[in-house]
Structures are given as C-alpha cells and as structure tokens.
Design a protein around this nucleic acid. Structure first.
Length: 851
RNA sequence: GUCGGAGUGGCGGAAUUGGCAUACGCGCUAGACUAAGGAUCUAGUGCCCGCAAGGGCGUGGGGGUUCAAGUCCCCCCUCCGACACCA
C-alpha cells in the first residue's frame, strides 16, 4: 500500500517535467510508518470524539490555553504551525495531567486584505473571508492540533459584531468613547484616510505611493489614558517576558515633572493687557533658572494670539509648512534647525529668574505631549542646545558639570549654580524645592505625564465592525438602541478603487432615521479598528453561545484569566495593551467580573521564522508551505522539527529546521516500538543492565516533565533521541532486552512524546495496547529508581581537568580527596609536591591547587 | 539617538544554581549489510602539535573577581528587534 501523497509530488510526468526529485518520506519503504495515513485517521477520530470539548462546569481543575487568533489569510504558514504546535502540546500535556483544558480557536476576520481583494475582484469581502477561514481551518486540522471547535468565534459574524457594538455603546455611555478632531494620515491619491500601518516608513502610501499628508478629521477615540497608571502598575504581577513588559512600560511612558504657567510679555517684560500665559511641562523644574527661551508647538492654539504683527507673515508661513510637512520632510530637515523654528515676537517671563525670554515656535515640540509648549534649557537638554546654537540664543549652565565633562548639554546630576535659591542643591532636592516654589507662587504644580495617547479606533473602511451611532441634525450623535444591534454592513455594495468607503455611498445603509426624534438622519460610516475585535474575543470564548450578553460573569469566572497566552512578539505592545485596557474597563463597567483585572496571566512570545535572514511573509514571497511536508514526512515530524530547532522564543531560520532528522527519528521509534529492530525480548529476572535502563526511564520522566514546565522543548526532543539511541543499544546487546523493562521504557517514551507527536504515539499505543494514549495520565517517576549508583569524579589541578574516575555516588569529601590524590595523572601534574589547597565538592569534583 | 535581546564547532543548538564546554540533531569520514543506496545499522568527528601516549589552545575582543567563568563585574566591537524629536 502506498501512502496517500498528492499526485503532483509523485507523478512521473511532473518529475520529468520539472526535473525535481519528488520529496518522499525518507524511509517509508522499509517500515510501516506512513504518516499521511495514520495522521488522517487520528485527526478524523479527534474531530469526531469531541474529547477536547470542555464544559464550563467541568469538575476537573481548569486551565485556559490560548493562541492569538489568526487573521484568515488562507492556508496555514510556518508561523501558524509553530504557534499552534506550542499551543497544542500544552493542551495535550495539561489534559494528561488531569486538567479540563479550554482550547478554543477563532478568526480575526475583519481587515484590509479582504477589502483590497474586493476592490480588485469585485467579490464581497465576506465571501472571500469565509473561504479563507475554511482554508486556514482545514490546514490547522492537518497539524493535528485539537480545539473545542464548538466555540469558534469569528469577528465578522453578526453575533460577534452585535456584542462588539454593544461594548462600544457601554464605553460611550461611560465616557470611555468620544469623538474629536484629530490629525490623520490622508492620501491625496486614494482620497482616503490611512491607518499608520498603511503608511510606509518613507511617508508614502502603501497602495498608491503618494506622499501622505496630515489632515484634521472627526475621529473616534477610546480613553485608554484613563488607565495609564493601572496599565503600568499591574504589569509587575504578570508572568510575561521581561522584554514585553519593558516595551509596554516604554510605550506608556510615565514621567514625573512639573507644569507651570508663564505670562506672555514684551521685550521689556511688560505683560499683555489680555493676561495671556502659556503653560509648559518639564521633567526638570530644577533647571528653570537656565531657561533662556521657550517653545510652542506649531499647532498650539495660542499661536495666533501671541504672534506680534511684524512677525505674523513669517510665523504663518512656518506653521503652514510644519502642518503640511510629512514625517519624511520633518526628518530630512534634521541638521537645518534654523529653518525648523521661528520667533513669535513675544516673550515669556521666566518665573524663577523674572527675566523675559523669547518665545519661539519649533517643530521639535509636539502638540500631543504634555502641554504642547516647553521651557528651553539649552545647557541641560541637547535638543535645546542644538536649537539655541542654530538661533544664537544664550546658554546658561545651572548644574556644574564634572571637571572632565567635554560634551555640550549636561543632563547628569550635580550641584546647582546660577540658580538663586536652588544653588548648592543636588537634582532630587532641587526638583522638590522648585515644585514647592511653583506651588507657593500659585503658578504651577508637580504633575505626571504619560506618553500613551488615547486610542484612535475609527477607520474609514468597509470591512470592519460599524460604529453603532446615528448622526441627526437636531439631536446630534445618537447611539443605536440595543434592540437594533447589530448594525451590519450591506451586502449589495460596489467596491470602487477610489479607496472611499462604500458605506457612505450606499443609501440603504447611510440614510436612516433618528432613534430619538424620528427625523431623517445618517448612519456613522466609520468602522472600528480590528484591534477592538481582538480586545475581547478571549472573553467570548468562555461563553460563545450567549445571546443575552457578550458573556456571563459565571462563564468568564470559570476560565479567566487565560493561564497561557501564546503569540508573536509583534503584538507585544498594541494588541496586548488594548486587551488589558478592555479587561479593566469591562471589569469596571460591571460587564466582566470585578476581580478580573488582567486577561493573560502567562504570556509566551514565540520567535519569528526567517528565510535567509528575512522575515517570512507572504508579501516577501519567501514562504515555505507546510503542505508539502505534511504530505510526506507528516505533521509529527514537522511539529518535532519546529520544537527541536531551538528555544521557542528565539527567531529561527527555516534553513535550520531539520525535518529529515526528525522524520528519521520517528521512523526509529516506530521500528523500536513494534519490535522491528534488535533481538527478541526475553522474560527474565532483571540484570544490572536492565535495572540501569529502568533508572534511565525514570530519570527521563523527571527531565521531560521539568522541560515541559519551563518551555525547553528543544532539549526535550534531544532527550527523546538520546533515550531512543540508548534503547537501540539495549535491544542490540547479545543477551537481548528484558521484555518487561523494554515495554516499560517504550510505554513511558510514548506517554512523554504524546503531546509533541500526537499521531504516531496514538497509533503505536493502539497497536501495542489497544487503548488511547491521550486519555492516559502523565507518568510519575518512581523515586526509588532515581538514585544514581556511580558518578564521574572530575579531578582538577589548578582548575584544569587531569583525570576522571568512576566513584560510588555516596563518596564523601575525605574519600574523594584521597581518590584524587591517588591518581597517577594527578600526581604527575602536582610534581610530587602536596597541594596547597583542596576544594572538594563530592562526589563530582575535586580541585587541587598546586603549592 | 534611547531602550531591549543576542554573539559557543562547518551549521542549528546544549550546559536550569559559578564546578567535566560543545548534549542532541544536521553535515562530514570510515566500516557493516547490499545487485545497489539519497535506506538501515555501527563507530568517529572543536582547533593545533604528535605515530602514539600526551600536551597546548578554545564560548565576539580586552581587562577583572574566583581554587574554578560560556555563566558574575567593567570597557569595547558586531548583529537583530522595538521606539523614534515625548520636554
């Protein structure tokens, strides 16, 4: 019987035509291991028997394993294979350890590719998406991963959209969702707004190549900044990779400082009649005496007020340029700082020195951070230094730099000078004193600033979840009543290559009536960022059948928080931050349980797959398709290869993934388990060699269990190979194997390998014993068999290994020293002189320090 | 620029707590089986000197701590990733 292999790989015609050697299972002719056949068999059985479907009231202890739900891009690629291999082995391992494991799968099914395809082909994105979901689903099945498919969630389904919109309305009601004008990326070629990820690094449009501009448009935001401090604080308790936590901390960007107002004055220090002042934020209020000018962002609302008439023309020109400038131009103007700022003609009064200092506009000050204006202290800030040099502004040191300091701005700590009442103080002390001064003067206070901005969630797109709001000329913005949810995008739409969302052009969707007054009104045509969908899907998995609410608190309590979340490190910031924000907000709104403050207890971020150093992706055209390997070497070999290639968190180069070695190993296991290698087993009392193998078997249980717990899967596979090599030697000895010993060794190996190579172990277990390996319990080592009888005593002279001696494991220090000194090799290196010092770590090491 | 991660044989990597560097696999070499081998089995394989016994060197580079350093400390180099004017 031939294994089922797709015709293109074995047909003689294709062989001759392509002159390519077809990829055949390396050893299928010599043993009965035919992965495509047994894998299909077991996958069908797992799908049919529902063993991995779990109920919320399952009496076993609960465990929730989740892989980040994928965007349905078609057949699975190697990144999926890697991700789901990790997830699946945990599901199977935890199940064998007696847990009820929730392992759901769903699809992040809104997004641009489907919409772009619709524009290209005219097909509705839903059709396209549903098709892709089926492709991905079936190729995930072929990896052998098991899920509770009853719980599948797709973000474009009507039910899911209904609850996404319901949650949005809750946020709106609570003031967590709001609308305001914001600058967005506008592509003049496509006549539409672009998401940041659609803008290339050089500031051009991903699709048309036009230079993207900034435009002000009404946009929807979610108030994640309300949670900035909590999002920062709660990171500490999460069992997450440290680098992800660091990235999140940096993204939140908390900084302590002070905020204070300065009166706008003329050159002589006379305040304006309207009493205008500007507010600045600084982290270094202690350096205020060194402020020799101040700067506002070009977008600052007071620009028009403070600019003097003689400067107006120049300032207006500067503001216009700065606003129009793309990010590219802003960056390329580096080095020409004189052109990146302009004097307003006004001054502000330095409240510390009481001196008037010039007020500038410069594009290095951002409206979106702090107050949009700064005090400039060139002596202690390098950007201010550079700007001061370019504009011939004075520089006054307020901190004494060390004698050997040869830099420009000095940002370190030191004693204050030229600083009035702060003179002689260090940094910490003077910051406190400066804040106290601002407060006593009533012009400022200590404040905390975050870099984190509110989350812009509106997208001018069709293929996303519509924002459930109606705009009425009389009533303004009116939420869609809950009974009318979900608001769904229409089916009969035309996709034009203009880039404009078809929702606004579709009268049936756009034209509606106001739920409040009943007059004609218009639907909101913006849809939500797909990150909104992925911010709560893990909650829906707990209760996917609920038609009354997005999920019940009981169901969520049964599983949340996720015990193990697995995904790519590319989501380290946005997705994980948004999901954490949603969990906290839903908890505060009473939708999620009050005590659920974090969604993901443990996070694992896997490395990327590269090909010759490049990130493997469809757009780069360097994909290695898993299908071919699944058709030949099989899913188990592919899974093992992914696990064996290196530590799970590291990036891997596809070249290094050794399928052949893993396939060969599985064939070896197959032949061993079915007695196709070595001498016939005998029934006998255990001899020394048998007992040693039993000890090794028990040690393997300990080693592998430990490895599973600490994600050291590459060394687990190595241990399996090592053990199998040992068994080969064992069965090939003259006296042959002892049946009971060999069977126990192989049975144990099967159990330990089952989560990683689920098909072959299931098949062999069934052939050997007629039962189902995945329903058996994880093995426990026999403590009495873990002892080691003999160990190698390493003898060093001056730290260099000079001899190795087998000694009983219970050898004590004195004996070890005596044995070491008795070694001829050691004596030769000591040169007959007794050692000056002896370090003894019995029973494995003695280091003799020569005199 | 700032922050983070990494650098070990020809290659992927192992060494969990400062204690035998290079487990396991790939590749390569030799042998066995064979009509044949891109199958299978067995053995060898860090580099240098040496017939061998043995010796020397060796974890990006330089210094240090220690009886002992891939592992700890300081400086430097290279590569990768994230954020990029955040006051």
């Amino acid at each position: 019987m031939l294994p089922r292999i797709s015709a293109t790989h074995v047909s003689v015609k294709s062989f001759e035509r392509n002159r390519v050697v077809p990829r055949l299972p390396s050893a299928f002719m010599v043993d009965g291991y035919e992965p495509p056949i047994i894998e299909a068999k077991w996958q069908q059985r797992w799908a049919a028997d529902g063993f991995y479907n779990v109920e919320n009231d399952d009496p076993r202890p609960h465990w929730y394993t989740l892989c980040m739900y994928p965007y349905p891009s078609g057949a699975a690629h190697m990144g999926h294979v890697r991700n789901y291999t990790f997830g699946d082995l945990i599901v199977r391992y935890r199940t064998m350890n007696g847990y009820a494991v929730l392992s759901p799968m769903g699809f992040d099914s809104f997004g641009l590719p489907a919409e772009n395809a619709a524009i290209k082909t005219g097909r509705h994105p839903r059709e396209f998406t549903d098709e892709r979901i089926e492709m991905l689903r079936s190729s995930i099945l072929r990896i052998g991963a098991v899920y509770d498919w009853r719980r599948q969630v797709t973000s474009h389904s009507a039910e899911y959209q209904k609850w996404t919109q319901w949650i949005f309305l809750k946020f709106l009601e609570a003031g967590l969702a709001y609308r305001r004008n914001a600058p967005v990326n506008w592509c003049p070629g496509c006549q539409t707004v672009l998401a940041n990820e659609q803008v290339n690094a050089d500031g051009t449009c991903d699709r048309s190549g036009d230079i993207v501009e900034k435009r002000d448009l009404e946009q929807w935001f979610l108030k994640i900044t309300d949670y900035a401090q909590q999002l920062l604080d709660d990171l500490d308790d999460l069992d997450w990779p440290e680098r992800v936590k660091i990235m999140q901390r940096n993204w939140i960007g908390r900084s302590e400082g002070a905020e204070f107002s300065m009166a706008v004055v003329d050159a002589s220090g006379q305040p304006r009649s309207d009493g205008t002042s500007i507010k600045v934020f600084t982290t270094r209020p202690d350096t205020s005496f060194g402020m020799t000018y101040a700067v506002m962002a070009p977008e600052h609302p007071l620009v028009d007020v403070v600019v003097t008439d003689d400067r107006r023309a120049e300032v207006s020109a500067f503001v216009a340029t700065a606003r129009k400038a793309s990010d590219v131009e802003r960056m390329s103007s580096e080095g020409s700082l004189d052109k990146r700022g302009v004097f307003t003609g006004s001054y502000v009064l330095n409240p510390f020195s009481k001196d008037p200092v010039p007020l500038y506009l410069a594009d290095y000050v951002l409206m979106g951070y702090g107050t949009g204006a700064i005090m400039a202290v060139p002596a202690e800030d390098q950007r201010d230094w550079d700007f001061a040099k370019a504009h011939d502004l004075p520089i006054l040191r307020t901190i004494q730099p060390p004698a050997d300091f040869d830099g420009e701005a000095f940002t370190g700590d030191g004693l204050h000078i030229n600083s009035g009442f702060l003179d002689g103080m260090g940094k910490t002390e003077s910051i406190a004193a400066a804040i106290a001064f601002l407060e006593s003067e009533g012009i400022g206070k200590g404040t905390i600033n975050f870099r984190l901005r509110d989350w812009l969630v509106s997208r001018q797109r069709f293929w996303g979840c519509p924002i459930p709001v109606i705009n009425c000329d009389d009533c303004g913005m009116v939420p869609v009543p809950e009974a009318d949810l979900p608001v769904l995008a229409p089916d009969d739409v035309e996709f034009l290559p203009t880039g404009e969302s078809p929702l606004g052009l579709h009268a049936g969707f756009f034209e509606t009536s106001c739920p409040k007054c009943g007059k004609p009104a218009h639907r909101e045509t913006d849809t939500m960022d797909t990150f909104v969908d992925s911010s709560w899907y893990y909650l829906r998995f707990c209760d996917p059948w609920n038609t009354e609410q997005p999920f019940s608190t009981e169901a969520v309590n049964a599983w949340m928080p996720v015990d193990q979340y697995i995904g790519g490190v590319e989501h380290a910031i946005l997705h994980l931050m948004y999901a954490r924000f949603f969990t906290k907000a839903l908890s505060d709104l009473g939708v999620a349980p009050a005590n659920l403050r974090e969604p993901f207890t443990r996070l694992f971020t896997q490395g990327m797959i590269r090909l010759d150093g490049d990130k493997m992706s469809k757009s780069k055209g360097n994909l290695v398709a898993p299908e071919e390997i699944l058709d030949t070497d099989g899913a188990d070999a592919l899974r093992l290869a992914h696990l064996f290639v290196g530590p799970p968190q590291d990036d891997v180069d596809w070249e290094g993934v050794g399928i052949d070695g893993c396939s060969r190993f599985l064939h070896r296991v197959w032949r061993l388990a079915l007695g196709e290698t070595g001498s016939a087993p005998a029934d006998r009392a255990p001899n020394e060699r048998d007992t040693e193998l039993e000890r090794r078997t028990n040690r393997l249980i300990v080693k592998v269990t430990d490895d599973y717990e600490r994600w050291a899967y590459n060394t687990t596979v190595a241990a399996f190979m090592e053990f199998t090599n040992e068994l080969y030697r064992y069965v090939q000895t003259d006296e042959g194997p002892r049946k009971a010993t060999l069977d126990a060794a192989i049975d144990t190996l099967m159990l330990l390998m089952a989560p990683m190579a689920p098909h072959i172990t299931a098949e062999l277990q069934e052939m050997r014993h007629g039962d189902d390996i995945h329903r058996l319990s994880w093995p426990v080592a026999d403590e009495s068999m873990l002892a080691v009888e003999f160990v190698t005593l390493v003898v060093q002279v001056n730290g260099k290994v000079r001899d190795r001696i087998e000694v009983p494991a219970e050898t004590d220090a004195a004996t070890a020293e005596a044995i070491a000194l008795a070694s001829e090799k050691v004596q030769a290196h000591l040169g007959g002189v007794p050692p000056r010092k002896v370090i003894c770590k019995p029973p494995t090491l003695v280091n003799l320090v020569a005199g």
